[in-house]
């Protein structure tokens, strides 16, 4: 019961904070909507999409990038939560969480789950707007995709948590955008099918395959069409567990946190 109370408390706090920062939702939606409405309109003609699984017919470019943009929302959200963890640590409020008598691993996983919940809500808000813009999947796909979204949000949240355990100062966070977010985004199948990348460069294609975000996007893409991609699930699940494990390790007082001078 104490565990449930603790988890609920963390979830409510994250929801309250999110509600207080409603501009976060707007900015989280503006980015993918710009890609969907502006970028996709401009590139529709240039980037023809062949019939590749899970699609069974020709699709428009807008339809192709919707799963990738759902992933992008969660990618930026994961990094946003990482930024807020670094900020919480700098401001000291992280200590409140870490001095709870609950096991630290439970606290960190609870925080991840709460973040994943908020990420998933944002993705559904994006799906709703895309639906209104006539970019639609089958209705059942929106339900089937839920576990894939949660797993992806957990993986990216865990990556953010892992990064936050190693980033010493808020000022260093800009590097994350340049060295993590943008490479993960562009070296994935979010904006273009991988066969197009392979046509251009074999080594870039290999890098894309190495990118866990590629597999998360494919997991979402297949799930949206009620199909199962075992490789994508295995990679996403494996990376989620690895990132969570490393993040918990990073927040062990003997390791990650100790590098930060407490002072006084």
């Amino acid at each position: 019961m104490a565990y449930f109370t603790c988890f609920t408390g963390i979830l409510i706090r994250e929801l309250l904070r999110f509600w207080q920062q409603r501009s976060r939702l707007i900015s989280a939606l503006v980015r993918p909507l710009l890609w969907l409405v502006v970028f996709a309109a401009g590139f529709r003609a240039a980037l023809g999409v062949a019939i590749i699984p899970p699609y069974e017919t020709y699709i428009t470019y807008e339809v192709y990038i919707v799963p990738g943009l759902a992933g992008v929302i969660m990618l930026f959200n994961g990094m946003q939560s990482s930024l807020s963890m670094v900020y919480d640590r700098e401001m000291g409020s992280m200590k409140v969480l870490l001095t709870s008598p609950m096991p630290r691993s439970f606290l960190l996983v609870s925080k991840l789950l709460a973040g994943a919940f908020i990420s998933t809500l944002q993705v559904y808000a994006f799906f709703a707007i895309a639906w209104l813009l006539d970019v639609q999947a089958e209705p059942i796909g929106y339900l089937v995709v839920l576990p894939a979204l949660v797993l992806t949000a957990l993986m990216l949240g865990a990556l953010g948590l892992l990064l936050s355990s190693f980033i010493k100062q808020l000022e260093n966070f800009a590097g994350v955008m340049n060295f993590v977010v943008f490479p993960m985004f562009f070296l994935s199948s979010a904006l273009y099918p991988l066969w197009k990348m392979q046509e251009s460069s074999e080594w870039l294609y290999q890098l894309c395959l190495f990118n866990p975000f590629t597999h998360a996007v494919e997991l979402i893409r297949f799930a949206m069409y009620s199909q199962f991609n075992a490789q994508a699930l295995a990679v996403t699940l494996g990376c989620t567990l690895a990132f969570i494990g490393l993040a918990i390790w990073g927040y062990d007082p003997k390791r990650g946190m100790v590098r930060r001078k407490v002072g006084g």
Binding site: M1, T5, C6, G9, L16, G92, S93, S100, L107
Partner: peptide, 26 residues
């Protein structure tokens, strides 16, 4: 703690409720 650790955008009660939940209090 030496640094303020309250969540400025939450109410006094919400801050206390958050702490109570971290302690597993009913």
């Amino acid at each position: 703690f030496q640094q303020p650790t309250l969540d400025l955008d939450l109410t006094v009660t919400q801050n206390l409720q958050y702490h109570a939940s971290l302690q597993g209090m009913s």
